[in-house]
Amino acid sequence: MNYLNQIRTLVWKDLTSELRTKEMLSSMLIFAFLTTVVFSFAFDPDSETVKKVFPGIIWVAFIFAGILGLNRSFLSEKSNDCIMGLMLCTTDRGIIYLGKMISNLIFMYIMEAVTLPILFVLFDYRLKGSLLYLILIVALGTWGFIAIGTFLSALAVNTRNSEILLPIILFPLIVPLLIAAVQATGVILGGGVWADWSNWLRILTAFAVIFTVVPWLLFDYLLEV
């Protein structure tokens, strides 16, 4: 089996087990929806200021729901010592990381595809820019978030208080991602030009690439027995 095939098998395994329990995806969806509703109570959706913080609301909802999913992503591997089985199966442990990252990414994209339209409806927001660019930024930002998040979730699951630890160690690291994603989303929602958000796109790309490659290299050290 070559590298890509192995990754595909792992992703397929995660998707199948999720499809049977629907545990992670359903809780992420409900949580994101709930966060949105809480936001519309906390900030009056009719006021003009809310239109300005709308990009922030989008990303906070995504990241909170994402943390929920990330907390669970390695928990299932820990029960029955599944992770040991995975480690025995593959020659390169980076494959486990990439497989987990891709399946987490798929869950996030599904959650976002449902939540984003709900956000637009509840806040009565009209998109002025291009939808394609918005999808690009959301996809890229989510990739960076999940890349580092998957790695740290594998780290946190091996500690005593993993569910509290993950947000504490993840949030400071994703500061640049959050800034870039919120700014770029804001520019695109307001119909800004390419030059206004190309810098943010660069940061998001750099973040996603760096924090996919570095964890992939370090995963060997993380999963030692």
Binding site: P176, W200, F211
Partner: peptide
């Protein structure tokens, strides 16, 4: 990981 993150934090906030 954290050390690699610091320059990215720096640039994003500078912009």
């Amino acid at each position: 990981i954290a050390f690699i993150d610091v320059p990215i934090v720096w640039f994003s906030i500078r912009w």
